[in-house]
Design a protein around this nucleic acid. Sequence first.
RNA 1: GCGGCUGUAGUCUAGUGGUUAGGACUGAAGCUUCCCAAGCUUCAAGCCCGGGUUCGAAUCCCGGCAGCCGCACCA
Length: 570
Amino acid sequence: MPMDPQEVLSLCKRRGFLWPSFDIYGGMAGMYDFGPLGVTLKNNIENHWRRLYVLQEGFVELMCPLVSPEPVFKASGHLDTFSDMYVECTKCGETYRADHLAKGLHENPATLGEGELGQLLRENGVKCASCRGELTDPKRFNLMFKTMVGAGKAKPGYLRPETAQGMFVNFEQVYRLGREKLPVGAVQVGTSFRNEISPRQGLIRLREFHQMEAELFVDPDDKTWPRFDSVKGERLLLFANTGETKELTLEQAVRDKVIVNEVLAYFMWLTHRFALDVGLDPSKMRFRQHERTEMAHYASDCWDLEAELGYGWVELVGVADRGCYDLSAHIKHSDADLTAFQRFDEPKEVEHEAVKVKFDVMGKMFKGDTKTVAEALSSMPVESLKGAKEVTVHAGGRSFQVPSECFEVSMRKEKVTGRKFVPHVIEPAYGVDRILYAVLEHAYSKSAKDGEDYVTLKLKGLVAPFKAGVFPLMARDGLDDIASAIQASLSEAGMHTYYDDAGSIGRRYARMDEVGTPCCITVDYQSKDDGTVTIRDRDSSEQRRVKKENVILAVTRLVSGAGLKALEGL
RNA sequence: GCGGCUGUAGUCUAGUGGUUAGGACUGAAGCUUCCCAAGCUUCAAGCCCGGGUUCGAAUCCCGGCAGCCGCACCA
């Protein structure tokens, strides 16, 4: 039975995980405040992710500004493709994507400006599809928040719609700091912004949200990953865009070309691993391959990790092979050298056919155009020049007839010490808020106790905000002193705990169950006699006695999911 | 952004154009040597915001904001 998200969100507010922002001023759609438990849960999720990507896989972490100058998004394509033009019906108010209406009227309507597009629609007499009413002029709506940086001659700036660009524009630094070797990867964990038209569904579509993105720069001719072998027998459930659904080992998936390459497969596996670690239910998870039409045009393959939630199947993570698109775009717009260089073991003598321009002949013929023509000629494929009496060269918007006296094609020897290339990018992009919500929903468990609903959040110890509750059975007779000392020792050991001496013991257990605390320590009268305390496991609600000096060890074991039997001898 | 539905303490909810908006849970203080939301006493907390109609509006109307559903959107 699907969970009602309202119920989960209600618990989130009640217990201090998160709630809609700016409530006292009427609220603002698409914005959420994180409360004490939500912040801790988010930190725990993010830190585990760092453990995998930074510690285990060796990515380096960056932190870049949220506000970026316009050229960044001109290069990335966000300025053009992230903004859509709309027209509205003046009669019934229906809105349409202007470029969709212009389909068939122009070969590429997406390239037109507001004015041109408006004119095109008017000339062709396009009317509202539902009521035949007149349409307004196209209006641009960009999903990026715009601002101005500085006063006076202020420059436009945009709140970043993804963290990825920070890694791309810093490729030179990342490559250099990685000692100029590939593969090299960078990650960024932080806030991004999209001015969504209609935010919906709680944490699923926010205007201000959190991402954990990794950009792995690889040699296009070597899309392998050193740790692949250790996981190649692991299985993933794959919904391919061919319509087939298969459970395959990573090795099979790569061999059968279901997944385009090894490194992509590896990071899909790592994503799966991460999802299990933070407590997502494997029976409500799948990888879905993007349809060819849905994939960005430059991507060679893209898979989403989806989770089944009360909202349906929701994308949590996208793992894409983005080819050389991002770095090439920044090379083109910035003129920076965002390439990698692979030195050969031995320099190679390479012989190849090359065009040699005879400037003496050409200069007399083309005068001031010589340079332009020569450059264009040199960049033409050698095959098209060989044996030709005359070739047509297009340069500077003009055509030139160049006779063969002006050049010759000959073998040329070159010493090549290595190859220079634009790395390809493998991008695993995680949506923190969606993952956090999915973790909560998958952990949400309701049972009947004395005819009433009893809610337990079965969070993994790894992500649980509190690792243990610490209670004196009675807040007197010295039980409270013992309990306080135990809490202090757990804090010192780095564990976030919750001390509670109020109300009945069952109520205190219930409070902890509802926020997913894996275990509770209770100091009772026996503790005074023999120095033991009880430790209760959340999911079974059973308890064991352990010596109070072993409490840290006991909590550590329960948090790691070892179960009560791991407490033998403590 | 469009259309439909909705908005009462932290949560769930009752409510009639008319006195002090009712209940449950939660929360707080206390009592009860008290291990699974027990019991008792006391307390705190609410009509989304702004206009209008009316002698009088939580209730009717309009606008805004927010939520849900559908459409559109989701590089």
